[in-house]
Design a binder for these strands. Structure first.
Lengths: 341, 341
DNA sequence: TAATTTTTTGAAATGGATTTCATTTTGGAA
DNA sequence: TTCCAAAATGAAATCCATTTCAAAAAATTA
């Protein structure tokens, strides 16, 4: 008996008594084929369980209908804290791609340089790339923009960027947070976050801006301090916050953390030191991850809509692939006020 | 000027004054080519920024070196609660695949039936499939096992399963939880979880088993009750728990929730009703998601090692792809005891 | 040096779907 | 009924890397 080989288009053509091109056209709903023929071919194809060979198809069409999504798991893994926000964003992107019938190739930059990631497109494995986070490699991304590789980035949006970025309006987010804390009558402010990340830095700037505007209005009794961290992680935030409450300087009564994860860490550290939230300290986080709603106390947070974000990233990437140059976009942020502030 | 076209192997061959096969061999480190020739070809290739066309390659070799990972985002999305565990598992799988130089095609069953997912392999888009969760479609999976599609599943491990599954030892996990709660001297037990999921059901069985063993030993004053939920979500768990504390029957003093998310919901509901954890009620969760450590109170939980799980899933899938039939495996679970119990 | 073996190299076939362009068939007009 | 335009179909070329197998070159032996 002959070895069972997957059916090819040629096989179906033979079985349906038509030619290869006709099968191709029938399957692709081309108007160049009679309704009758199409139905017949489709029948034969389904009866024999034919599935098209996507590799052959991709080779012929130069389009892969596949998008590479680059997501840095590794940094998360090491801390054993995965900011769920990025995963939700991935879900958003996944859904948007699904709607457009695009496959999603998930890549980890840990295993390949941005440089080599770029070749994912030239190698036709994917038509374009979505970077979920700059991952501190902005220079690489800028370099990548020089080469004709279609890609978009979730991250900080700045006018000078040579590539298309989508991100929440971090400045506005920080601004909102500060306004809210000011409304609570707080006066000793602390920002927590790794300002090496452009996004985080913008949050801080918005925060500072709102405070300094107020400086003029109110008799300036505002204290602003910073706590820079090397990473997003819960652990780092917790340690830093614990140090801080032990320290000599006056303990802040209003904290804006650049992520909900960090906010939770800080609250936990403060509580351990006998301070209570929100009585002694108001805390505002960022991202409004699912857990925030259920934290104790429920966390006030700046929300970014991952659904919209995902759809937007995909939409813009599609434009880029078609050779057009999509504009960067900042997404409105919204302050979700809960008990922590 | 001619349109700039991506360089093909033929171009490189011409530029290097060798033939196409030689280029192919040089790039693939075949021993059939002189060291000198190889170096020369490599030089030319890198100088002209040549990248291989993976589609052509995949077409020729029948192996795609790509694994499809099926992950149901949608159920998570709707609840706006994404159990981070599954994402961590994804990270584990991603890493394991990266180490083996396999691409990861992320698929969402929402957009395609399991049936059609199966054709991902026959269409040569992927060599095999990893299902991250049965997603309540066990029948489909069983049907898929009939067809010669290499796949493995993260989920319940049962001897009768016609496919290879990897999962934590859910029975043991439940058993451990019960033992622990018994050790605390608790007597009114409650299990919370959607027993439609085989995994969850096993957790419940282990839980019950440990309790009934004790029944004999201790003067049986144990109350065991169940709370079945339609989904994993925080919201559903919270509502159910709120109902329960209002209800007439004696409130349990020991709860085993089938997920950390549910555990958190329950704690929050109980606390809202004036009960305190762990004084009035001990609570044990499952998965030991990152947030559990930082919850208030920190959550006792049954831990599953996502790293090991990811590696194992990949390893077994590779075997399956090679035509061998890998065994299912249960992973040891470990109880991480924290303040909630 | 001639003959033989071993090592390198290349021409052509292969994988499977799509597209171009020519050919056949059909429908309508004359 | 004949002829022309339109529609449907098919033969062959194409996409690009790999493999087979034959040929050429180099190394070895007689």
């Amino acid at each position: 008996m002959a070895i069972k080989r997957a059916k090819t288009m040629e096989d179906i053509a033979r079985l349906a008594n038509v030619s290869k091109p006709t099968v191709s056209r029938a399957l692709r709903n081309s108007p160049l084929v009679t309704e009758e023929t199409r139905r017949h071919v489709l029948d034969v194809a389904t009866k024999h369980g034919y599935v098209i060979n996507r590799n052959a198809q991709k080779l012929r069409e130069s389009r892969a209908n596949t998008i590479a999504v680059v997501l840095d798991f590794s940094s998360h893994r090491e801390n054993r804290i995965s900011d769920p926000f990025i995963f939700n964003l991935l879900a958003g992107v996944s859904e948007a791609l699904g709607q457009r019938d695009q496959d999603l190739l998930l890549c980890s930059p840990a295993h390949s340089s941005v440089e080599s990631l770029g070749s994912i497109t030239t190698s036709r494995g994917a038509d374009g790339i979505i970077f979920l986070g700059e991952g501190g490699r902005r220079d690489d991304l800028i370099a990548l923009a020089e080469r004709a590789v279609p890609f978009v980035v979730w991250g900080a949006v700045e006018k000078t960027l040579p590539y298309c970025a989508v991100g929440s309006d971090n400045f506005q987010g920080g601004f909102l947070a500060a306004k809210h804390l000011l409304d609570q009558g707080r006066s000793r402010f602390l920002f927590i976050g790794d300002t090496h990340h452009a996004e985080i830095n913008l949050r801080r700037q918005g925060f500072i801006k709102a405070l300094s505007e107020e400086m003029g209005a109110r008799a300036a009794n505002l204290v602003v301090s910073d706590m820079s961290l090397d990473d997003f992680s819960y652990g780092a935030s917790h340690r830093a916050a614990t140090e801080m409450v032990k320290g000599p300087r006056p303990v802040p009564d209003a904290i804006f953390a650049a992520s909900d994860t960090a906010a939770m860490a800080v609250i936990s550290a403060f509580r351990a030191a006998g301070l209570s939230v929100p009585e002694d300290v108001s805390v505002v986080g960022y991202n409004d991850i699912p857990a925030s709603e259920h934290f104790h106390p429920p966390l006030t947070s700046v929300r970014q809509d991952v659904h919209v974000a995902g759809a937007l990233l995909v939409e813009k990437l599609m434009l880029a692939i078609e050779g057009r140059s999509p504009q960067s976009t900042m997404l409105e942020t919204r302050l979700i006020v809960r008990a922590s502030s």
